[in-house]
Write a protein that binds this DNA or RNA. Sequence first.
DNA 1: CCTAGCATGTAAGCCGTTACATGATTGG
DNA 2: CCAATCATGTAACGGCTTACATGCTAGG
Lengths: 179, 179
Amino acid sequence: MSLKYVILTLINQAPSTGYEINKSFEKKIGYFWHASHQQVYQELAKLKKTEMLTCEHAPQTDKPDKKVYSITVKGRDELKKWLHQPLPDKKYKDILLVRLLSADLLPIDTLCEQIKETAEFEQRRLGEFLHIQKNCYSDEQKKHLSDLDKRLFINMKKGILLAEAEITWAKEALETLQS
Amino acid sequence: MSLKYVILTLINQAPSTGYEINKSFEKKIGYFWHASHQQVYQELAKLKKTEMLTCEHAPQTDKPDKKVYSITVKGRDELKKWLHQPLPDKKYKDILLVRLLSADLLPIDTLCEQIKETAEFEQRRLGEFLHIQKNCYSDEQKKHLSDLDKRLFINMKKGILLAEAEITWAKEALETLQS
DNA sequence: CCTAGCATGTAAGCCGTTACATGATTGG
DNA sequence: CCAATCATGTAACGGCTTACATGCTAGG
């Protein structure tokens, strides 16, 4: 339901190719939105058919040709309407917490291994976030950020806070389980 | 892919009806797994057909009849296998963070309203969690919890930590946006 | 030579949502 | 009398995943 609007958001920032949008999902915004490349191409086709986007074929000589998508007035209006709608409920899905319920089938050691792996993953993510924040924003810069930069900065902040919460939880969980 | 195993987990704890499982999703475990009642009934039918569950019809006089599902050996084996598999990647989907990117289409005041509403929602959730933790676990009790109780306790802890992270983020975001 | 990056998709099938559907009992 | 609780579903549709599919160029 929402992927449509995520793509419109990205193309509203600047005309893009499917490939570029997929790169964004892998690198830039992957920590707050997930989509596979197949899904992106399918959704782009749909958005073109419903006239939310226009498509321009851009031949290249040294690389494969690409298709550059731009947002239409209709697309921007739809996006704007969506932005003003109330947020839908979050649909939580945490497999590790589900597994925690199966005390009789999953030995504590195995469970602890899974918690540790999750913690290590979150620790790496956190490291990357902090690295970007340190390199992209000096203390001086933080004082006069543009409107868009401010929003990117607080986005990153959420990634950091959630990763930290995961790590804190993992530590406490391991302590409790092993006591 | 995982709902199947969530349901097996619940029925492995005790034989249940579809109605009871739905209640669990609404109340007990809703903060770490979401499913609609239609989805549950469909999944139960599938699990019965693949012989992961057996079903017993239980007539009642004062209330509608019910169907009590129990896990089979095959079901428990499948569940056990799943529990030992590596955790799949988390698929993040945070609509509020997506909306934050549309600086040109969503005025700051409207955005702040949405952040405040999210914060209030998380604050209520947090209140409920803390209430349960206070009422169900005294300091004395915490010292000798059963294996299953320990796991329930650390589950709740994650709900608390994540809600707190959301609230902290919302405060910082509002400050940054309004400065 | 082989890998990574560039660049695009189709098809089948399962997962999940939305809409529709019924009907009894209990408590305010 | 009305709302909530108990209790179960079906059908249509759209979202998402998994598997399959192609082909060129640059760099180590």
